[in-house]
Nucleic acid binder design. Structure first.
Lengths: 187, 187
DNA sequence: TCCTTGGTAGAACGATTGGTCTACTCATGG
DNA sequence: CCATGAGTAGACCAATCGTTCTACCAAGGA
């Protein structure tokens, strides 16, 4: 019975697509995905209806994981909203420094997929609003006078750090963003 | 003599590619480019050696124009380094608000072109270092105690504003970035 | 005058794309 | 026992990709 350890084709496809679509952009060939997942062609179309469906689902899964990760980082930092928010920025350079880091998945998807009604865009919009809400909630708890505006600012810092990290990871943009975040939290 | 008003095929190709490659990403088909430029197939390969060459040249041209534009904005703002730098951020929302705005060209190119040795990457690196140097020079003139670090910060704000603007232009990220820039210039 | 040069128009190339289809395997449950 | 459903393997399809090629044309200089 040592056989069925291996996840089903659906899971293997998601894992392979998550990796390859990030590493090689949205232009990964279907063949490459199938080969990496070691899955029959037919499984892709049965489970996801096509390449676009798979890519959208991958983005959905990533978004859930990323939000979950952010929540975990927040919670690991204790109760103080200030410390919790700064922990998010401390985590940035860790994320950016990872071997295959190539910038923000969701921005990359938005830029690469020109068709305005591609399902991926909706996922990206949703992810951003969730992250924004996470920030805002902490700022409210912190008693910040303008939590909405401050959340916009922190959000912009995160996007800026990820964008900068995509091309100049050596510049330690996480640290830079954190320094600016400290200024925002003081107000 | 009213004939030769029309620019040559090289210029028409560059113009068409600048527009289309921004609007539809790096995946524009060669056929679409030729049709838009109203140019013979052969001209593309004679002038640029192929699609990649054309795309790289477009990026080079864009970089030169963008740096030139930044310089013009700086100079139009007078002598005060503080005012000059803030003018750059005032200009951001103007850029972002333009009809077809889709984020930073160079970041999009970096994310879309997975091959690490594509000529476009070198152009993007060069563009960023030029912009960074522009910022740093003004900060030096301003007498900022840490011009290099501050340039990193301003640069990150610009990237963040462009990234945010690509998907949430209504949030006026230029204004947000400007507010944060003011804080940096005070130090 | 001829002949080079730079352009157009478009057929054709092989490779690759995303997607469909058929045939076979194999475990499971009635 | 065998019927069903999920999965595999791979041929196949039309479309599109970037590229190369031939054939023709028009202006300019020797």
């Amino acid at each position: 019975m040592a056989a069925t350890n291996r996840p089903g084709p659906r899971e293997r496809l998601l894992a392979a697509a998550q990796q390859l679509s990030y590493a090689h952009g949205a232009n990964v060939g279907v063949d490459a995905l199938l080969k990496e997942a070691d899955v029959a062609r037919r499984s892709l179309y049965e489970h996801f209806g096509g390449k676009d469906g798979l890519l959208a689902e991958v983005l959905r899964q990533s978004a859930a994981q990323d939000i979950e990760h952010a929540r975990a980082v927040l919670d690991a930092a204790g109760r103080s909203p200030r410390r919790r928010l700064l922990a998010l920025f401390d985590d940035l350079d860790h994320v950016i420094g990872q071997p295959g880091f190539r910038g923000c998945r969701y921005l990359a998807a938005d830029l690469a997929l020109a068709e305005r009604d591609h399902p991926a865009h909706a996922v990206a919009v949703d992810y951003r609003s969730q992250l924004h809400e996470l920030l805002r909630a902490e700022l409210v708890r912190l008693g910040h006078p303008h939590p909405m505006r401050a959340a916009d600012e922190l959000h912009l810092l995160i996007e800026g750090a990820l964008a900068t990290g995509a091309t100049r990871a050596d510049a330690r943009p996480g640290r830079t963003a954190r320094a600016l975040a400290v200024g925002i939290l003081k107000m």
